[in-house]
Amino acid sequence: MPTSHEHAIGALAKPVLEVSNLEAAYGRIQVLHGINIKVGEGQLISLVGANGAGKTTLLKAISGLIEVTGGTITLFGDAITTAPPDRRVRAGISLVPEGRQVFAPLSVEDNLRLGAYTRRDNEREIDLERMYELFPILKQRRRLAAGMLSGGQQQMLAIARALMARPKVLLLDEPSMGLAPRLVQEIFEVISNCKSKGIPILLVEQNALAALSIADYAYVLETGKVTVEGTGPELMRDDKVQQAYLGM
């Protein structure tokens, strides 16, 4: 939908993160075939698609966990395509990885403090308190090993840990995976909350309905290519999207 793209909010917001013609491969198997996506200021961008479409690979490439084989990634106009992951975190990219990936043997509080590892300012303690306000359960369990938390609590911790870096763009990989419906709702509330604070978000979700309904703009990924894009409501009305991802 190239024309609607021009009118979309996507065209108006100043781009924070831009991915152009990105290609990535695992060994000789190419996974991403020239991806183009944009995340603008204050936007929530959703990325939906089936298993194996390359969603996680794309996020890993953006955060530098895997090397790309072609294309560019820019943050505020600066190319970060080949920067090591820690430099990208310093530049403002935080990824909440698939499957939470908390530091299991470390305490909840240490997990949060490590989230602010790249920061040298004096407001880290304030942010820690903010996270405890946002997620009171984490405050209760702050001395507990993170691995002892339930799945939902680990997801909260993983998000809080990413927010401790004060990211300029937040990447979320399947935050609702494996969680009970009530918790899924809670996680989406947290995501909306981050958006309302103005943090640009790139959200990868299999729960397409939830992801599209809160998105400013969304992309559908199929076998490593963007096949459909548009605003959230546009995609929800799209026949193909309805059939393939919304089960209508």
């Binding site: 975190v89 530091f103 299991a104 240490d110 990413a162």
Partner: peptide, 25 residues
């Protein structure tokens, strides 16, 4: 120390350590 904790974090989960900005090299 933060460096000590970062080393423990790296041992627990190398990828996550990179994602919080720990320079693993």
């Amino acid at each position: 120390t933060m460096i000590g904790k970062a080393m423990l974090a790296m041992s627990a989960n190398r990828e996550a350590a990179q994602l919080v900005g720990i320079n693993t090299r």
